[in-house]
Design a protein around this nucleic acid. Structure first.
Lengths: 148, 148
DNA sequence: AATAATTCCCACCAATATTATAGGAATTAT
DNA sequence: ATAATTCCTATAATATTGGTGGGAATTATT
């Protein structure tokens, strides 16, 4: 049930954008550098996020990307769905697509449904703002430990 | 975060074995037929489960597989870990392997840890016996509906 | 007007994982 | 002996992952 690097890099980029919210745009060069990945690859991730309406862009020199909504109005579920297509652990739990033909007599489906529910519960109740706050306090502690 | 077909077929096979617990062994032909997959493929799945000590085998004619413990003493987490290697959504949440070098200053890791905890909570508290019971009542309802 | 910085778009690619299939050796009940 | 079975290993097609690269379009700056 691994998440792909799309989710890994993409979500962290969104947190970076959250920390920068209200302070103009960030370029892909900027965002990519922070994570040590190529600009090209990050561009593709951002493209998915933009398509999903989560970020807005400004083209041309001094352009870049910013969140389309405040960080406390974007939850992690949205972000991961944009990056990964869905958060589904199994096709048969999807709310949108078709379900397996023997769903009515499948011994595993109730488990998949419960698991999916718990996963989405975590993802949909955590906002980018939550992550940013956690991150800041974490950095504080980290810096203090380094000083010693 | 999709689970593979190994998890899908393998877990259902384990439920089949649960329903048969106490009544001798089941052959791969038997188990494979129920799910409409090839014997060869199911053999490989069972091999993982056997390696993990979850099923025992009897070779030769009239041989087959059975659970090594009662269904209420095997939880879904064990089964999926045997089939998939781990249930981890991200390498950095693993209890066994190495964690990413900048874990101390990662904006996403707290989320991954929380998500993993919720997932394992579901998987480790659900036993094969639970699934079998659910399945039986489900089949009952299904049969009644069919009769009409 | 020229230039540099940037998003945007698309084609391509290598490595890896997934999802199997096939064949035969070893074992055992009948 | 024979038939039924587990066990083991090799192979292969397909899909996914994780990228790279090039260039067109747009815009601020000089």
């Amino acid at each position: 049930m691994k998440l792909s690097t799309k989710a890994r890099y993409g979500l962290k980029a969104m947190v970076d954008l959250s920390m920068n919210f209200g302070g103009g745009h960030m370029s892909t060069a900027n965002l990519a550098q922070q994570q040590g990945i190529s600009e090209s690859y990050l561009e593709q991730l951002i493209a998915s996020l933009k398509k999903a309406g989560l970020v807005t862009s400004v083209r041309g020199a001094q352009g870049g990307y910013s969140l389309s909504r405040p960080p406390d109005e974007i939850n992690v579920g949205e972000v991961l769905r944009a990056l990964e297509g869905s958060t589904d652990v199994m096709n048969c739990v999807s709310s949108t697509s078709v379900i397996c033909s023997n769903a009515c007599s499948c011994s595993a489906r109730p488990l998949w449904l419960k698991l999916q529910q718990r996963i989405d519960e975590v993802l949909d109740t955590t906002t980018l703002a939550d992550m940013a706050v956690d991150y800041k306090t974490q950095l504080n502690r980290f810096d203090k430990a380094e000083e010693e």
